[in-house]
Nucleic acid binder design. Structure first.
Lengths: 163, 163
DNA sequence: CGGTTTATGGACATCGTGGTCTATTGATGG
DNA sequence: CCATCAATAGACCACGATGTCCATAAACCG
């Protein structure tokens, strides 16, 4: 075993690391955050600034995300005084998959994880079975979870009902 | 110098899209590819160039990935004529989680998807339950799948299996 | 021993994502 | 009508992940 390879100089390699196995991009995560915020409130218009604060997202960047969600038909927007963003459908009718899809995060599956151009059940790459398991788990999650689920969960603040 | 004005490029929205819900980084995928290649062959040393061709990975970039895998103790390396890389353990003893961990892809969970600093079962963010489901699915997948699984699956060449 | 083969280590160059900023358009209210 | 608010649009920049290249070290072969 000649792999002594003494690590006397523990220089870090340029291969960075993300915050773990990031299932979605940062933009997509922002989208889910803001959609969650909207689902948890009343159906009144919320401004981008307002949402950015609550969702802890850079304001100007969020506007781009919101634009995408509007273009995808998940949000309605209203300009001018009193305007803002509202969910286009009921929270129970908006799946995570819809939000991710609006952000360009297609539900996996299109690309061969092994680098092969074509990869299907007939001519599977070595990683195909394992990747299929992962892909199906992700799709099941994104397809089943809706905004209604996250709206119901974990109230952010104690909203005391007056009277 | 990036002051080369690159006009005429119809940059839609700056929110790019990856090849779907990419569960791992490109580097981590490369690592899984090359580890799969090694698991599928005999335990003879394979050169980086050889592996790069089979795994369809840029040669020089792969060398960095291989370095990481060696540093993590998943691979053994041998310099000089006849040298190359070999799995440090049996394929059944190398989980995907090990490979991902070597590439810096920690098994999720550390960061709050909603942007909160702290986020646990006691004070969960709205996304916490949904994210927990996702996180556990990913961890289960990465923890259960081993190189032996992908080595057995989908023989690239016809090879008689014993037993 | 020198020469070849291989891994090792790092210096760049490049590109996409994330993030900031400014201008414009549209709606509302006085 | 004008002032103001807020969405829309896109230019622009920073930075990290990706990818290329080259020098060096180590192991083997003659």
């Amino acid at each position: 075993m000649r792999t002594k390879s003494k690590p006397s100089k523990p220089r870090k390699l340029p291969i960075a690391h993300r915050d773990g196995i990031a299932p979605v991009s940062q933009s997509a995560e922002y989208a889910l955050r803001v959609m969650t915020c909207l689902a948890r409130g009343d159906q009144i218009a919320r401004t981008a600034t307002d949402l950015a604060i609550e969702a802890t997202v850079p304001v100007h960047y969020l506007s781009k995300v919101l634009r995408r969600l509007v273009a995808a038909g998940l949000l309605s927007s209203q300009k001018g005084h009193g305007g803002g963003f509202v969910l286009a459908r009921a929270p129970s009718q908006i799946r995570f998959a819809d939000v991710l899809g609006a952000m360009g995060e297609a539900p996996v599956g299109g690309r061969c994880a092994f680098g092969w151009g074509k990869c299907d059940a007939k001519a599977p790459c070595p990683l195909h079975p394992a990747w299929t398991v992962l892909s199906e788990a992700l799709q099941a999650w994104a397809g089943k979870t809706t905004l209604a689920d996250v709206a119901a969960a974990a109230p952010q603040k104690r909203r005391k009902r007056r009277g």
